[in-house]
Structure formats: C-alpha cells, structure tokens
Amino acid sequence: MKASQHMAVESSTPPSSRASSVLMGRQDYISAILRLTGMELYKIRRRLMSKVLSFISVLSVLSIFGLLALAAFLMAKDGTPSDAILRFSEALRLPGSLSLIVQLLLTLGQILVIILVSTIVGGEYTDKTVRLMLTRGPSRTQFLLSKIGASTVCIMLGVVGIVLLGIFTGLLLNFTTGIVPTFDFFSASWLGHSVLYLLITMLGLLTYAMMALFLSTLGRATAAGLAGVLTWSFLIEPVIGVVGLFGRSISGPLGSFFQSLPDYLIGSNISVLLQNQDSYIFPTPSAQQVPSQSSDIHALLVLLAYLVVFIGIALWVNKRRDVLI
C-alpha cells in the first residue's frame, strides 16, 4: 500500500492557478490550525450564547461582591462589631477576593465553560456543519485541535477577565466597609504564586472542558457533553468522595481502595493544587489553607492523564468514524 501511496504522490497533477481575488494563506500544519482557531473564536464571538454566558459571568461577579458590600454596609449601619465587618472587607479586597473569584470560577464558571465547549463541538454535529468543515481542506485532527485551541483561549480570557473584574469590583465596593485596603502582602513571590493559582484554575476548567469536548464528540451532540460533564462533576465526583470517606470505616485492601479513589478525581486534584498555593497567597491561613497531604506532582500527573485520555480518544474517534449526517 505504501508503494501505491508513493506512486500517487509522484504522479499527482499540478494544481491550476486560482482567480486573482482568491488569496491563499500559508498551508503548513500549524498555520492551518491557527487560522481555524481564529475562525472558531470569530464564530464564538458572533453567537448569542457566548454573549449570554459572558453576561451571566459578569452579573455573578457583580452580584456576589455587591451582596458582600451590602451586608458589610448594613452591619456597619447597625453597629455590628468591627470583626465581622473586617471579615467581609477581607473577602472584598486582595488577597481574599482572589479566593472568592476562583471559587466562583470553579463552580459557576465551570458550568459556563462546559456549556460553551459542548456547544462549539456538539453544535457542529447538531447543525451538521461538520460536513461543511471537513470537506474544505483541514484534516479531522486539525479541525478538533482548533476547537481545543479556541476553548483554551476562551478559558484564559474568561479567567483573566473575571479575575480583573472581581478584583476591581471588590476594591471599589470595599469602600462601603470604611476599611482602607493595604497591599502589605504584595511581593514578587506573591504575584508569582497568584499567577500559578490562576493557571491551576485554568487547568481545572480546561480539564472539564476537554471532558465536554470528548463526550460531545463521542455523542455527536451538545447535550451529550453538557449532561455528561455536569453529571460527572456534580454527581459522580461527590458520590466517589463519599465512597472514599466510607472506605475509612472499612479495613483491608477494599477500604484502602475506596479511600484512594478521591485522589484520582479531577476536582480533588485541582483542590490539591490550589490548596498547596494557599499558604503563599493568603497571609493568615485558615484551616483549609493548610497545604494538602498530596503532592503537586501527583495532582498534575492525574490531571494530565485525564487530558491525554479525553483529547486522545476524541481525536481517535473523530478521525476514524464516518460522517453520515
């Protein structure tokens, strides 16, 4: 077969020239992926759904910080002891606000990312546009890689945008508490760990996004990705967490097995990575801000394994199967 392939290459007919108005771009593998990624981002920008998701994100940030500020304001008005107001103020300003925003990103943000990625992947099957795209030149692998690229860009921009919005909104609303913000905590090390903290958040969102991409590809529908990942992250992971706790009450290998299960979940490994950064970012660690017993390496390897499995199977399935729609 290789011989015939070689022959086909040798005897391929040269392409004829195109109309002068047809300006072809660079045709190398990476350029094609970048061009497709740009197209995906353009499509996302033009969708009503992405505008609605952005609106929900912004509204959520404003609401949460608004509610905190309102509560602090009402307490100050009632003459509540300053300790309680101080706690609200800490949540409104850095570094406390960073933790609040990240928690928001890993709950509501996660749902929005899952909706977005399931739609941009499953929508190609629902609208049958996969047929359009796969008959234009890009390979199936390039097509899916451009989706991954667009998802990654959306997650990065979304996290950075929401974090900046949250920080500035919190600082602004902090004035209602009457407590002047200080930046004693700020140092190069703090900035580095905060960046790492956000990168971990992005990695967490990306892992769930890739699960959505995988399930949407497998199920050829938006609903497959959406329902699958939401079920996994909000039902199966908590259940496995409970099974892990249950394992503590059982002795022997079965108990050890049950206990170890939560160590291999996406959510718990993201928590481990975040928890291991807490002590560097938050000057007065609470009980939950004590470093985790699990190592960063373990958590990163587990998340990497998930990414390899999700992306690998999605690429394989996408490459192998017939497009019959």
């Binding site: 771009g25 497709l36 740009g38 197209m39 359009l132 890009p138």
Partner: peptide, 24 residues
Amino acid sequence: PVFYPYLSGKDNLHAVAAASGMRS
C-alpha cells in the same frame, strides 16, 4: 447545504474561506 445558522451568509463564507486555506 449546511452553514452556521447564527452567522450571516457573508460571515459563513468567511468561515468557509478560513477552512479552505484562504487568508482570513
């Protein structure tokens, strides 16, 4: 023919152009 329903005819052709290897 199938295209992205939320895009205009012109935007759809731009999407096709990018997929066809044309300059975007």
